[in-house]
């Protein structure tokens, strides 16, 4: 316990204090254009929860979160499985390659995608050259671009989380299944996939939470058309200057995270069979 104290203290200062500040701020009131008045009032929560557009934004956020999560997991799963199982000497290098994008900020990567996916970008040029399209596809400044960029940005997280969760996947078990008559597909369906589920859930939760709190990519790639809770918080906090409302939204988003964490733990226990 004594050893934990500095850590807990650091956690408290760096995490708990802003959180308490946030919760307190959400109870203040905004008067007129943006005048902040100290109060203890649920008004911001009432405003947020009774605003039809906010519900639309929340629904949009969840939908985007689920879509990006599913796509990211589908694309990352084979890579993670390969990396977790390979005995190649290149494993270290491949691993580094898979997570190298984490070394650059998502701002940089989003701008990269902005260029790649623009009307004259590599993707549209390639499609035109191959004769697949005649008119450029609109891949930026809309939700398509946001999804593409988010999936790429989330992949390293998904891969890392899944590899960490693939502890029960073992070559021996697959060999045992093979010796008992399971071909590759059945071995995957009956053995490898069920055993990899904890990793899949960890990865999915991670991607989902990161996606619904993602602010930069929807902002930069969305062309002002993609409204999610995080961009809404940003607008309220820095443009409309309604701090209580921004705080209330943040608190609600945190609660949403909490709900998903609980659901995740339930699901995880079910999969682990404990």
């Amino acid at each position: 316990m004594a050893l934990l104290t500095p850590g807990l203290l650091a956690l408290g200062v760096s995490f708990l204090v802003p959180l308490v500040w946030l919760a307190r701020m959400s109870l203040n009131r905004t008067v007129g254009p943006a005048e902040l008045q100290p109060a203890v009032s649920p008004q911001s929560y009432i405003d947020v929860l009774t605003d039809g557009f906010m519900w639309k934004v929340a629904w949009h956020t969840l939908w985007l979160g689920l879509l990006v999560t599913v796509l990211t997991i589908v694309v990352s799963y084979p890579i993670a499985l390969f990396l977790a199982r390979t005995r190649s000497r290149l494993r270290g290098l491949l691993m580094a390659l898979a997570i190298a994008p984490l070394l650059t900020s998502s701002v940089v990567r989003t701008f990269g995608w902005l260029i790649l996916l623009s009307d004259d970008g590599v993707v549209n040029s390639a499609l035109r050259t191959l004769g697949i399209t005649s008119e450029p596809l609109v891949l930026t400044n809309n939700v398509t671009g946001v999804v593409i960029a988010l999936v790429e940005i989330m992949m390293p997280y998904a891969i890392l989380a899944m590899i960490a969760g693939f502890g029960r996947v073992s070559k021996n078990l697959e060999e045992a299944a093979g010796s008992l008559g399971a071909g590759r597909l059945r071995c995957f369906v009956r053995i490898t996939f069920p055993l990899s589920l904890p990793g899949v859930f960890t990865g999915a939760l991670m991607v989902f939470v990161l996606t619904i709190s993602a602010f930069i990519t929807p902002r930069l790639m969305g062309g002002g058309r993609v409204f999610v809770i995080a961009t809404e918080i940003y607008d309220q906090a820095t443009t409309t200057l309604d701090w209580p409302r921004a705080s209330a939204l943040s608190v609600l988003l945190l609660l949403l995270f909490g709900v998903f964490l609980v659901l995740y733990q339930r699901l995880f226990r079910m999969v682990e069979g404990k």
């Binding site: 500040w21 946030l22 900020s105 709190s213 918080i233 820095t238 705080s247 988003l253």
Partner: peptide
């Protein structure tokens, strides 16, 4: 937005950054 973006990955951070 460029200059503030790195601060704003999580909404909670966004407000505390202010």
């Amino acid at each position: 937005r460029r200059a503030v973006l790195p601060l704003l990955l999580a909404p909670a951070v966004a407000l505390s950054a202010c």
